[in-house]
């Protein structure tokens, strides 16, 4: 459909912008310590922490900016921030 007025964008197209390249520190998830509380997924400003079939958190490193909020807030200290090696 041609748009007559203003500008419009396809919903969610921001996804083409992979913000993972911004990262300096990388969150490493220690599954043996994880209690599957889901807090990391809730607090992530990107919303890029999903979960696997067992309920363990799985970050999407294509988008994770490495802010470290998940590691800071994790009540079980099950997330460690490691310097990114590229």
């Amino acid at each position: 459909m041609a748009l007559g007025l203003g500008c419009s964008a396809k919903p969610g197209r921001a996804k083409e912008n992979r913000t993972g390249s911004w990262r300096t520190f990388r969150p490493e998830f220690l599954h043996e310590k994880c209690t599957k509380c889901g807090l990391c997924s809730l607090v992530c400003p990107e919303g890029c922490i999903g979960e696997d079939a067992e309920g363990q958190p799985v970050p999407d490193y294509d988008y994770c900016k490495g802010c470290g909020l998940c590691a800071e807030e994790c009540p079980s200290q099950a997330i460690e921030m490691k310097k990114e090696e590229k």
Binding site: A14, N17, C48, G68
Partner: peptide, 18 residues
């Protein structure tokens, strides 16, 4: 990995980390 986000606010936005 590039999965589907289930939220209505898609990732890839340009906000500062945190």
């Amino acid at each position: 990995m590039t999965g589907e986000s289930c939220g209505l606010f898609e990732y890839g936005h340009r906000a500062c980390g945190g």
